[in-house]
Design a protein around this nucleic acid. Structure first.
Lengths: 248, 248
DNA sequence: CTTTCAATTGCACAGTGTTCTATAAATGAA
DNA sequence: TTCATTTATAGAACACTGTGCAATTGAAAG
């Protein structure tokens, strides 16, 4: 028909005719890929929609009202992977280590996503039950109950996930290249009267502190520090554990 | 249109005639106040400018190019306050404790600023020398050097500042009121087959884990967990310290 | 008396998250 | 078959955002 109002839609069909079989999983997949590639700062709903070949509203329809909800789905993806192959018969210390090492591994594979995770874990911790379950059962086996369990739980989640959120997140705009020079300049400008020790000792540590080292696309300096922190926490929790079963 | 040529400036004078004596300090003051009041998410350069009675560009001129630079100044304000009244003659453990407790105190007075601090400390750690100096000297006194010092440094900064960044940051849009109900609903929906322990035990912990308790406008549940984590770290670092001076 | 300069402004650009409304296919009911 | 409802999509618009550019002007410097 000649009087069809086809011009109004600018050629592209509307409605379900254009169904592309969009799913929450695919949205989260592409969102993570986009953040990996372009960085968290540059990630936007509109560009995600463009990458999916879909209108922004479609995304909102699938993930619930807001961008924050999408972030929640992304975070859940990370904490869900954590539970795989948990050795239930091993001592609780080993289980804790396995869980948090796998979390660190998952995040360091997608360092650009890190800035998201902390806030999401905090505001919607109940959505990340695989992680919660693992930590709670471990602490229960250690004998922790009540306020003591709360403190142990928060120390683990807050300390370790906080570490990951903070340290694995790359600097905005990827100024890592100029970073070493910037660092040297800053260190040179330190006032010896105000910060005597830092002034005298920081230069020699410039390749040990602050500056990251990458191997095979993964950071190895923060990773080793994370492991050190993890060991410290497990040792401490073992020493204070109400159930003092011998640590074979 | 009309013959009035002065309307162009809308009554307000331009140029230095309108000088308001804007300073970096005042900008940071008002920025922190705004974030405290409206929340981090709602903070914008334009509204800050409005609150200061000034044009946005004026702020850029004073703090350097970008919003991120302003965040850097804010973070520096927090870490600078940390150094006050450090007992240099006390053992390094006590000095560490003092430093990080004062940091926690500073942040929990401005919980809405927390989301900023992690990223800023990470990407511009060298700008926060008061904190760095304190931690480095303490670790030096404990005998830590080289890679061991790096790991200890990162564990402390990453674990404790990460904890603060993650846990003290309030949920977006302040849905704390509806939170308890939401929590109960989520907990009730937990699949016992997938998460048996969480399902059976989480309800009784609902007022110990996740849910915060406030007294005198300050959170007391995360604060006590932070202190527990701090003690764990200091104990562990003492046990592994190369300098084994007796802990009186 | 000029010139330079520090501090400030308005305007405009290229986005952003999100809401409202229109739409067409799939589905189910009559 | 026919018709209403639901589901999954799109377009346009709104009220913002960070930030660059060029203009402006009082004060200081020469």
């Amino acid at each position: 028909m000649s009087e069809k109002k086809e011009q109004k839609t600018n050629g592209k069909p509307r409605g379900r005719a254009a169904a592309v079989g969009l799913t929450k999983d695919r949205i989260v997949d592409v969102a993570i890929a986009q953040i990996d590639e372009k960085g968290f700062h540059a990630f936007s709903m509109r560009e995600l929609a463009r990458a999916l070949g879909v209108s922004p509203n479609n995304i909102y329809w699938h993930v619930g009202g807001t961008k924050e909800d999408l972030f929640g789905e992304i975070a859940a993806r990370f904490t869900a992977e954590v539970s795989q192959s948990l050795p239930r018969d091993k001592p609780w210390q080993d289980r804790l280590r396995t869980v948090f090492l796998s979390y660190r591994e998952a995040v360091s594979d997608h360092a650009n996503v890190a800035p998201l995770l902390g806030a999401q874990l905090k505001s919607n911790g109940v959505a990340n039950l695989a992680l919660v379950e693992a930590v709670l059962t471990a602490l229960h086996d250690a004998g922790y109950r009540g306020p003591g369990m709360r403190d142990a739980f928060n120390a683990l989640i807050g300390g370790l996930c906080g570490f990951v959120t903070m340290e694995f997140a790359p600097a905005p705009d990827d100024k890592a290249q100029e970073w070493e020079a910037l660092f040297a300049e800053r260190v040179a400008g330190i006032d010896p009267a105000l910060f005597p020790y830092t002034h005298s000792v920081l230069p020699e540590f410039s390749n040990r502190i602050f500056v990251l080292r990458w191997e095979n696309g993964k950071d190895v300096s923060y990773a080793s520090s994370f492991d050190f922190l993890l060991d410290l926490l497990i040792e401490g929790l073992s020493a204070h554990a109400p159930n003092q079963t011998p640590t074979s």
